[in-house]
Design a protein around this nucleic acid. Structure first.
Lengths: 196, 196
DNA sequence: GTCTATAATACGATAGAC
DNA sequence: GTCTATCGTATTATAGAC
């Protein structure tokens, strides 16, 4: 079990640091130091070095968020409430971390989407997973496939952009504005999509 | 004139590199090297070092975009067309750079919003400038102040988020989806805002 | 799986000449 | 304004012992 614990310590720490300092702005030494984990373990768990750690951190954070999104769609009373829940969850996180931490996938993608193809693909996969979760939920409510996919992509864009603006302005106003206007779109899509 | 030329070479090069590699992922050595500019000039024009260069690059890129946005709103036939123009402009840039370059303000903010307070404020100012440009255009069409400001914030969020997703997926689909759904919101706001 | 030591390089920043 | 040289330090990555 020591194996999983050590690796998890790596991923939890890199996740936290990437979210606040970005991928390129975070050194491996700092991750090892703050995780309280042996330096010798780094290249044991992540033989591909920093890019490897980046990819696994993106998958780790992306899967965790995806599970939260899925749970949100399963529990919410309707689709608009579920989508709003995604924004409310991010608002909570921004408040809890005093606007220090954004999204790990976004941070890594922003730094190395044009630099490392494997890492870019890992980020792309996480975004695609989230979109599938949202899209599936709308498909169940008889929204046609194309509309559901386009809407899901738009929701993630708005969520990521608003997270960046809120972090930069140290204000949840952008997040609330995005939540409000995305809701307008969700209502419109649900209204226009006939239940046939 | 040599002064302005050298400084401009710095800013144009750092702008380009920050957009593709991020702020932390770009070294001063690389900027100097690719700009073909003397190393000794760096701390002459940017005495505050890398953070100073980051702030001035953000202002440089932010102002340039703001002028483009203003021109777009002045020339477009109506507000929906002007807003769509912002997305079309970004689509062009993504295509022209083969999805290498995103937004400089976003790249710098993503890396150091939680690390350097002065740099964060510079990024925040650029976002605010853009929002004011958009907000003013909607105010002229009798949209009330609060709605105009909230809509402007939302448009920037969607634009930044879609830029990140498009860059990460190497596809303009997220950008087009964002443009389409933002248009729904713009139409709705214009319809709901009475001309009194 | 972990430890220590270290390689090789890149980083931001500075000094002093001109 | 620019040039060259260089200072510490941090970076990622590796080697070999245990």
């Amino acid at each position: 079990m020591a194996k999983r614990d050590t690796k998890n310590l790596f991923l939890e720490t890199s996740n936290r640091l990437f979210r606040s300092q970005g991928f390129s702005g975070t050194g491996l030494k700092q991750i090892v130091s703050e995780a309280g984990v042996p330096w010798g373990s780094l290249y044991h768990f992540f033989p591909g070095g920093k890019d490897d750690l980046g990819m696994q951190t993106v998958a780790f954070a992306g899967n965790a968020d995806n599970e939260l999104f899925k749970a949100g769609f399963a529990q919410a009373k309707d689709l608009p409430a579920a989508v709003a829940g995604m924004f409310k969850y991010e608002i909570q996180h921004l408040n809890r971390t005093d606007f220090q931490e954004g999204c790990a996938v976004a941070s890594v993608a922003s730094d190395v989407a044009a630099v490392s193809e494997p890492v870019r693909e890992a980020c792309s996969r996480s975004f695609a997973d989230w979109e599938e979760t949202i899209s599936d939920a709308f498909l169940e409510q008889k929204v046609n496939k194309r509309d559901a996919k386009e809407l899901a992509s738009f929701i993630i864009s708005a969520l990521e952009g608003a997270t960046l603006l809120s972090r930069t302005k140290r204000s949840i106003a952008p997040m609330k504005n995005a939540m409000k206007h995305v809701d307008i779109v969700v209502q419109q899509v649900l209204k226009d999509s006939p239940n046939d």
